[in-house]
Design a protein around this nucleic acid. Sequence first.
DNA 1: CAGGCGCCCTCACCTAGATG
DNA 2: CATCTAGGTGAGGGCGCCTG
Length: 205
Amino acid sequence: MLESQRRKIARHDAILSTLAKLDYANRSQLQRLHDLRSDRNARKVLDGMREFISSFRSDSGENVYHLNKSGRERVNSAIVRNKLSTCGHYLMRNDAYIYYGAPADWKNEARIKADGEGTSHIIVDSYFMYEMRRHFLEVDHKQHMSKNKEKIERYKRLKATGVFQEKLRYFPRLVWITLTEARRKQLAEWCDGLDVTIHLWDEIR
DNA sequence: CAGGCGCCCTCACCTAGATG
DNA sequence: CATCTAGGTGAGGGCGCCTG
């Protein structure tokens, strides 16, 4: 097999693995993660993968890609993704993934056990290591603020159990990604007492 | 010579502002 | 109100250049 062909297939497989990991990703995210060069070139590369990936136009205007049947078979992924008009949550999370350097151990929808004490567990949007520290990511995509407050209370209860501090000697940093300055302020207030970083989506994409 | 890439182009779609 | 218009943005076709 020609070297150029081999490289092409390797790049395709890398992109398919990313989509298996992230479920959905838009053109510019795949472009940044896989060095697809210019916008035009990125579109051409992704267009050349139509056998394995499907796309739709998101409300932000960009194409969003996901694995189709043969793409799933190619990377042994069982999760079926379809056109999803409400994929903003995924796209925000992806930009956090890229911002934090695409950590190898990044895990979405991670189940965090909170042994006893009322809270059985928390499903965190992402759990990852960054600069030798564990991080929880929460994405606030037009979510009801009451839900966010409830989430924060659960983190506080989790911290109060001391389980993490015992294992790690510290409680992981909570990272939020939200949409407006007003929401950032409110979240920061509620997170008082936690190690927290709050990004606006526009600041990290 | 095939594949990767950039540039130029057109088309579709959306939005803001003007106009009836 | 509805509708028209101009400008902005992304998708994708075409072409030509470069490189292994």
